[in-house]
């Protein structure tokens, strides 16, 4: 289980954030999140104040996994896009590649059609970045051997303050 890791380096993080910032403007969205399929937040842009971004990431990943299982029950491989319509705010969720999920929150200033159109345009660029992330992770980076540097004392001292 610990044999594989999802790693995001600064370069790709910055590229994904830039795409999201542009998408917020183009889609007239309130906020945009990128989440990995296991529930971790990768980046958040727009009006994110007041939103529990960690909880949102976990619930979006759970909901996407459940939606994927529903798809398989009716013979589809996946539902790559799912949409939640509220009274004033709506959630557009789309799967990017094998590992990430794009979440767009929008209100009456925008529309499902506009969001869908802009997301599709951004999708291609994001997919390329995700491929780069996967390649880098597979190659590893000996200069950034984080876990190799962790000592037993580091591990023991982790619990001194939190609990």
């Amino acid at each position: 289980m610990v044999s594989s890791q999802m790693v995001i380096y600064e370069e790709e993080h910055e590229q994904l954030t830039l795409i999201c910032e542009r998408l917020v403007r183009d889609a007239l969205a309130k906020a945009i999140f990128i989440v990995d399929k296991d529930g971790q937040l990768v980046t958040a842009t727009g009006e994110t104040a007041g939103i529990d971004t960690t909880g949102l990431a976990s619930l979006v990943a759970g909901s996407t996994a459940a939606t994927g299982s529903l798809a398989q029950m009716i013979g589809e491989e996946e539902f790559p896009v799912h949409f939640h319509e509220g009274n004033s705010k709506h959630l557009h969720v789309s799967v990017i590649g094998d590992t990430l999920i794009l979440v767009v929150i929008f209100d009456e200033r925008s529309s499902f059609g506009l969001v869908q159109l802009r997301v599709k345009r951004a999708y291609k660029n994001m997919r390329q970045i995700i491929e780069n992330v996967a390649t880098k992770a597979a190659e590893g980076n000996p200069d950034l051997d984080l876990f190799g540097e962790i000592t037993d004392d580091d591990i023991d001292s982790l619990f001194n303050d939190a609990f």
Partner: peptide, 9 residues
């Protein structure tokens, strides 16, 4: 699968 974010450290 652990998740390491170098940008957020």
């Amino acid at each position: 699968m652990s998740f390491i974010n170098y940008a957020q450290r």
